[in-house]
Write a protein that binds this DNA or RNA. Structure first.
Length: 571
RNA sequence: CGGGGCGUAGCGCAGUUUGGCUAGCGCGCCUGCCUUGGGAGCAGGAGGUCGGAGGUUCAAAUCCUCUCGCCCCGACCA
């Protein structure tokens, strides 16, 4: 491609709408333009990269034995109702009413559609297992789109669904997808880590997330840098905190704390550290109020709590309920004398002489102790891992960082096949639910994630595998006939004889402009035709990443490129 | 949805507090000259419903009301 014949609108200045590096660079390098909040147009350079990613994904899916389909963006609400996810997606679902008054959704994901197809078309174990996938735009009315294509209202996702006759088969399908994901992200040049995840709204049990560590990531990574334990925030566990056996219980004491409601306020007022305090949170579970005890510096993990309670519905109690249950306004709840079921987090169960609310207005209790002052119904792990916690496997201090979620695999089991009645007859003629797995990749996020970890002050640094063009030819002076002839000759040769994607910067711009633009758009290899060519007929081949330069006579360009490609392809 | 901010040329911004000539600046764009190894220089030029609607006023980018859009923090989120 010749620069003058395509559209690569680079910007010298950073657009004000962008906050993070990948977003800024995608706009400055002319990959994308925002059309409205959470929706982006991909310009010529952007779609070239997008297609590179898609091709890699498609190749690896096919290699893993998955079969491609293409599903509609339009979805009837009925299927979502049938699976019970209409209310779960709620306002995230983008819907509209058609001319007949029928309400239709823009698909946020496709479990229901694919399951509907499979239940209609597959009825025998002889047709299983099968894994179907598609690469398609998904729509979600995110409450707050941000960071460019990292969180947008429409985004491209590769989603795959496996159907097996038993759990052993599911494990094989899962493993096969998991391995394919590793190959995909490796080929894209991403540094990623795999974490244990909770399956959340998807249902099912086993789940892994593929994350690119990055300070702009919206997901939390809990890792042990010693033994390799890794999990996401919902899933991560900490080693139990050992009991404080050296402390002797002190007499219980009531103390006035006028208008001190939050842990921080009480902590400052009483000069007691938050980790010596216990907060009492009133939840409504199955219509009944229950109390959750947490250390003052810890946060409740509702995912874990839901599992402990075995309840589908769980919500914080409203202020009226709290006052009714505790006898005091919000901020003064405590376990002593509380007439409801009490679940204590493990970290609370090892404390002595702690501070709690007194269940009286403007009063707290000092030197509260378990057993002596109140009894609990259950000890459980219901909190998020916090700084200072230790690894549950090896007791090394745990590391908390952030990451961008680029892929997620789930073992779903029969959640959807039961709900949607996707059944088959096994070899003995018995009807069974299909065993499902689902596997997603955020295609746009791969691009943004890659840029986050691969750029410098001059712009993007593409790996060979994703680069929109592998080589850019820069004739320093387009008005110098010999240089231009040389540039065209190499361009024609590479384009027609090697299949290497080449961009020829034929613009009549000063060299500085062209070098800066080449760096900004991140082309891995530059071929510069300039002073050296005029003097000695040599071309300069320069690498974007390292800045290394090789002087090469024109007839050796192809062989030089070949060896450089080999070098750059190595991880 | 709560809090904060912004909307003036393709991009980045000043001007708005305290209303007042033809609405400015940098980058980009067009023409010419000159220049050609890291975002050159000179000269000339094009480009604006000041987000939109209504109002106050002799006069509105500026004040008032309504409205639309965008960004940030939080809540939310496979």
């Amino acid at each position: 491609m010749k620069w003058s014949q395509t559209l690569i609108p680079t910007l010298k200045e950073s657009p004000s709408e962008a906050e993070i590096d990948s977003h800024k660079l995608m706009i400055r390098a002319g990959l994308i333009r925002r059309i409205t909040a959470g929706a982006y147009a991909y310009l010529p350079l952007g779609i070239l990269v997008l297609n590179k990613v898609i091709n890699i994904v498609r190749e690896e899916m096919n290699r893993a034995g998955a079969v491609e389909v293409f599903l509609p963006a339009l979805q009837p609400l009925g299927l979502l109702e049938e699976s019970g996810r209409l209310s779960i997606f709620g306002d995230d679902l983008i819907t509209f009413e058609d001319r007949h008054g029928k309400v239709t959704a823009l698909g946020p994901t496709h479990e229901e559609i694919i399951t509907d197809i499979v239940r209609n078309e597959i009825s025998s174990y002889r047709q299983l297992p099968i894994t179907l996938y598609q690469i398609q735009t998904k729509f979600r009315d995110e409450t707050r789109p941000r960071f460019g294509v990292l969180r947008s209202k429409e985004f491209i996702m590769k989603d795959a669904y496996s159907f097996d006759i038993d759990y052993e088969g599911l494990s094989k399908s899962y493993k096969s997808m998991y391995d394919a994901y590793c190959r995909i992200f490796d080929r894209c040049g991403l540094d990623y880590i795999v974490v244990e995840a909770d399956s959340g709204a998807m249902g099912g049990d086993v789940s892994h997330e593929f994350m690119v560590p990055s300070h702009v990531g919206e997901d939390v990574l809990i890792r042990c840098l010693k033994c390799g334990y890794s999990a996401n925030r919902e899933r991560a566990e900490a080693a139990p905190i050992p009991p404080e056996n050296h402390m002797t219980p002190q007499p219980l004491k009531e103390i006035p704390t006028p208008d001190k409601r939050t842990i921080q306020e009480v902590s400052d007022f009483l000069q007691v550290k938050p980790n010596r305090m216990v907060k009492t949170m009133i939840y409504i579970s199955n219509g009944q109020p229950i109390a959750i005890l947490l250390r003052g510096d810890h946060e409740v993990n509702e995912t874990k709590l839901t599992k402990v309670l075995g309840q589908e519905t769980l919500a914080l109690a409203d202020h009226n309920t709290i006052e009714h249950v505790t006898g005091a306004s919000v901020g003064f709840a405590g376990p002593v004398g509380l007439p409801v079921k009490i679940i204590a987090d493990q970290a609370v169960s090892v404390l002595c002489n702690f501070v709690t609310g007194a269940n009286k207005p403007d009063m707290h209790l000092l030197n509260v102790n378990l057993e002596r002052d109140f009894v609990i119904d259950q000890i459980a792990d219901v909190r998020y891992v916090a700084k200072g916690d230790r690894c549950p496997k090896c007791y090394h201090e745990i590391d908390i960082s952030q990451g961008i979620e680029i892929g997620h695999v789930f073992k779903l089991g029969t959640k959807y096949s039961d709900a949607l009645k996707a059944k088959f007859l096994d070899a003995t003629g018995k009807e069974k639910s299909m065993i499902m797995g689902c596997y997603g990749i955020g295609v746009n996020r791969i691009i943004a994630g890659l840029i986050e970890i691969s750029h410098d002050e001059n712009g993007i640094i593409w790996p060979l595998s994703l680069a929109p063009y592998k080589v850019i030819i820069i004739p320093v002076n387009v008005n110098d006939t010999p240089s231009m002839q040389m540039a065209n000759q190499i361009y024609d040769d590479l384009t027609s004889n090697t299949g290497i994607e080449v961009l020829l910067d034929d613009r009549d711009q000063r060299p500085g402009v062209k070098f800066k633009d080449a760096d900004l758009i991140g082309i891995p290899i530059k071929i510069v035709i300039g002073k050296k060519f005029t003097e000695t007929k040599e071309l300069e081949i320069k690498l974007r990443k390292s800045g290394e330069t090789f002087l090469t006579p024109p007839e050796e360009v192809r062989s030089r490129l070949k060896s450089l490609f080999e070098m750059l392809s190595k991880p």
